[in-house]
Nucleic acid binder design. Structure first.
Lengths: 157, 157
DNA sequence: TATACAATATATTGCGCAATATATTGTATA
DNA sequence: TATACAATATATTGCGCAATATATTGTATA
């Protein structure tokens, strides 16, 4: 829905990145709807991590995903409501609550798997059109992490 | 703060774009703080449009910016509180409320102007390192607008 | 003029995220 | 053992945005 941001302003790059992010999320949601996948797009990586771990606490998932613990905890109620995961007390550490995929959750991930190769192929072809968006984004992010805008601007004569 | 997203998952590109967007916003905020610029980063384009228009209603600004009218309206109270803009009833159309930059708002934009060339130079040098992030993002956004992921995936044999 | 419609503004709700504070439980150390 | 600290979870608040509904005012048309 949002138009491409115009360029006559200092925040053009951030707004462009945000526009791309929201566009991809919208279109992925549409794709999922077509495919009968009920996984919230923003929880894909969480469920992938959980499938890989088998069983994990919110704190573990957060570390794996590089997200905050609070954010993971905030996503879980929706996943519980959708019947994709279950929650158990850890028998050996009462501080922890462990999450697991349900059968339904595993089935949804399996359904997602059937699209993974196709989606990867789509992105590869897209990047042939546009330049390697993935590589460029990653390089830009790393460059800004290595040396933030403030330092770069301060170094201008 | 958020780490670079990992890649073993279908939402990698969206998460990467979002990470870049938030990184740029954070770093621009830091830059503004150093420079004594009190403009909210996400209102830069609004104030730029308002300066250009001289005087404009929320609906006009929304059209100019390609944002929703509601979003523009939501940003204005903060800008009023900061003393950057003022609000007036339109004498010829009672539906409209017109916004203008205050002297302080104009001064802040002038202060921002003194950094614009430097920031542009920084981005140009950054893009020499990373590939032309701006062009690649724009191309990717346009490609997805022209043909959404759903169609692209459906066309895979 | 009266009525329907368009344009504008406002209010409410919800999502996803960040930041902060607090409570609970486990672990290490005096 | 007692105490301090670490790890984990929970609750609250706020921001920025999207979506939706409603009220108000202007404009076009019967």
């Amino acid at each position: 829905m949002p138009a491409s941001p115009d360029l006559d302003d200092i925040s053009f790059l951030g707004r462009l990145a945000e526009a791309l992010s929201t566009r991809i999320e919208e279109q992925t949601r549409d794709l999922f709807a077509d495919a009968g996948i009920v996984i919230p797009v923003r929880s894909c990586s969480l469920l992938t991590a959980l499938r890989h771990a088998g069983e994990a606490s919110a704190a573990e998932l957060a570390r794996t995903l590089g997200q905050s613990h609070q954010l993971v905890v905030q996503k879980c109620p929706a996943l519980l409501r959708l019947g994709l995961i279950t929650q158990h007390a850890d028998p050996v550490d009462a501080r922890r609550k462990l999450f697991r995929l349900t059968d339904e959750g595993a089935a949804q991930m399996a359904l997602l798997d059937t699209y993974t190769a196709g989606i990867s192929a789509v992105y590869e072809r897209l990047f042939e059109e546009t330049g390697d968006t993935h590589a460029v984004l990653l390089k830009t992010l790393k460059a800004l992490d290595a040396r933030p805008l403030r330092e770069r601007v301060a170094a201008i004569p």
